Simulated assay, not measured.
Amino acid sequence: MSEYRTIDLEEEKNELGKIEISPEVIEVIAGLAASEVEGVHALRGNFATDVAERLGRKNHGKGVKVELLEEGVKLDISLQLQYGVSVPEVAAEVQTNIQQALQTMTSITVEAINVHVLGIQLELAHETEQQV
């Protein structure tokens, strides 16, 4: 299990209070931003997240690992792409989309977004039969 830590955002000068963002929130934002990119078939989690998802528990942070650093956050995104897309182009678009989403929604400094392509989703045989 990961330890529970939060990220402290810089406080406003008016001192209204402290804003803390949980790493799970960053995982969800990054996961949704990555899945919006055309060419991404699915995010790939570990065995435990796959089992939980099969039991009906939706995990929007699946396939996203957040590491909290002094300078900001580092993300590792594991995904499966659709067959026929340009891997470098889709990966770069995933990085850009995640960075923009996190900057817009949280103002957190992103140190690195590492994209790990773990597989390619081939067109299934029954899908091609239905199209004919």
Rank of each mutant, 00 (worst) to 15 (best):
A91D: 05
A91P: 07
D76E: 13
P23M: 08
E53W: 05
I29S: 05
E93H: 11
E24S: 14
K18M: 12
L32S: 06
V40F: 02
L43Y: 02
T49I: 02
N97D: 10
D76G: 10
L81E: 03
Q99F: 08
A92T: 12
A48N: 12
L55W: 07
G63E: 06
A48R: 13
I98D: 04
V73E: 00
I21S: 02
F47Q: 13
A42Q: 06
G31F: 00
N97H: 11
H60V: 07
I29E: 03
L81K: 00
E93K: 15
I77F: 03
E53Q: 14
F47E: 15
V28T: 15
A30I: 01
V90G: 03
G45K: 01
N46Q: 08
V85K: 08
V85D: 04
Q82D: 10
E89H: 10
Y83M: 10
L55T: 06
P23Q: 14
L43M: 08
E89C: 06
E70P: 03
I21C: 06
F47L: 15
A33E: 06
V64Q: 05
R44A: 13
V85T: 10
V87D: 08
E70N: 09
E36F: 05
T96F: 09
Q99S: 13
S22T: 13
F47C: 09
I98W: 04
V66K: 02
E24L: 14
G61D: 00
G63N: 02
T49G: 08
S22M: 11
L68R: 11
V85P: 01
